[in-house]
Amino acid sequence: MNFKGRDIISIKDFSKAEINYILECSKKMVPYAKGEKYTNILKDRVLSSLFFEPSTRTRLSFESAMNRLGGRVIGFSDPSGTSQKKGESLADTIRMADAYSDVIVVRHPQEGAARLAAEFADVPVLNAGDGAGRHPTQCLLDLFTILTEKKKIEKNKIVLLGDLKYGRTVHSLAYALSLYGAELTFVSPGSLKMPKEVINECKELGVEPISTSNLEKAISDADVLYVTRIQKERFPDAEEYNRVVGIYKIDNGLLKHARKDLIVMHPLPRVTEIDPEVDKTPHALYFKQAFNGVPVRMALLSLISGGRL
């Protein structure tokens, strides 16, 4: 399989076989990501890391990934120090980065920004999140986390919880999990339900997702609980927000109803969705999930740059 020169814009650009290949490569990257082994396969390559919007995990893990591969990183984490402020178009900024580097990572508040960036760059572009749009590397690291913990993705009972309407990660995750034939249950407040289009996509892939508001029941036989943040801005008043947040809070009391091997995932940052008391339990997988961003992004950077371990 040849990924050299390819852009990573949307998970839907990849077949299941290609995703499997990326996940295999990610596995090989783990000891290098941990600093137990060293490699220089991207020596003297330069990554442009263009973050037009704040990010902690995505940016740090991309930059760590490039450094762990022996490459270098240029870029910015806040566009206020750039010509963007003077009204420069994204296209022009991308043209510059294309001239200064070998691969571009871009996070931008406008939907479709990464696709546009790829049009203006000859070097490969990696989408690190474009507005409420796509975030394929998050999706891949989520799949990688499920695969490493459960040894397979298919047939797992997976509960997606929280803001399923606006949440950027859950739509592509639902699609990708359906590619593998996972069993999906969607749990959300009534006003933040999974959009119909996403449910239809799952169905086209042969998965019949269950939608419910009963979290306790949903997790009773689940393998994976994927929690997302519910944003205050989505609610008309604070009272309603507090009520919803209270219902869907994950704590040890709730997890008594779950299987021992249930893993709890979260794309982070979490606010109040998961009580810190859960952190010490074997259910808590979100920090490991965040670490997995490094080997997955190492795999992607090396594949599209043509570097081999």
């Binding site: 009204g87 296209a91 931008h108 508040p109 406008q110 939907e111 546009l116 409420a132």
Partner: peptide, 13 residues
């Protein structure tokens, strides 16, 4: 129709 779509901003596309 998406107000936050990059094609609705000042880009040369």
């Amino acid at each position: 129709s998406n107000p936050t779509c990059v094609s609705n901003f000042n880009e040369p596309v």
